[in-house]
Amino acid sequence: MRIGRPLTAVALIGFVALMLLPLYSMIVLASAPDDGDLSGLGFHGFALFDNIGQIMTDGRFPRYLMNSVLIASAVSVLDVAISAAAGYALARLRFPGRAALLNLVVIALSLTPAVVMIPVFVMLSEIGWLNSYQGLIAPFAASALGVFLVRQFALGIPVQMLHAARVDGASELRIFLRIAVPLLRPALLTVLLLQFLAQWDNLIWPLIAASEQELWTLPLALSSFEGEHGIVYHLQTAAALISILPPLVLFSFLQRYYVSGLTLGGVKR
């Protein structure tokens, strides 16, 4: 034990260093002026901002970035709105179809997206929504996880408080907006964050549903970087670096909502 402590500390620090090594090399690679040294261990000049500038001015990268921001924002806002309303209703209102919806949500939670991917693709192609913003947004406009998370959280809102608001004369909509939504804020932020990160990182759906480059998102652009630019690893890494920054920033501000979303059900009873 007595010798164990510093040993543990050294081992831990070593492990963390190993974890961070790829990140360090990412910055090195993204800052390289060319692909001369790919080891990513030492800086050879610092061209990060030139590289970023080149990506942003050359080709359609700004467009992809904008598409990503637009789609991830639209999806996460829609998901929060729909999940908030449905999760609250499931937890705290009695209405016909409640049990059916809860069953749907629980089933959807255990389905893999791979199962519904093909029929949704066929459906959207039938109605002409492939290669459209709505076709990239609508399939993710709500989420089973979002509804479920909000519902679990809303079960903590005391029924008496809602009764109090009714006696106060508030309409059900007013109760939802003025009482439930503020109280559900942590859950809603968790859903917002999780869905934004998921969409920011969504490759397979745009890959299927957006063949037109006008609609490409960052993941799609990154996955096709070679096709568009040839093998230029320092630029590709710089582009990847750009795609990594918004989630990291978002995460650093909303960390506790992310962790609470993660551990829901895992740790708590």
Partner: peptide
């Protein structure tokens, strides 16, 4: 009638105050 239209005021067992509103906000809600 709707609870809000019965001309009653109610005091609940656990107060059931709105925790996110100030005292003022609680009083003004109705």
């Amino acid at each position: 009638a709707h609870p809000g239209d019965r001309g009653i005021g109610m005091v609940f067992q656990d107060y059931a105050l709105y925790p996110h509103l100030s005292v003022e906000g609680n009083l003004a809600f109705g």
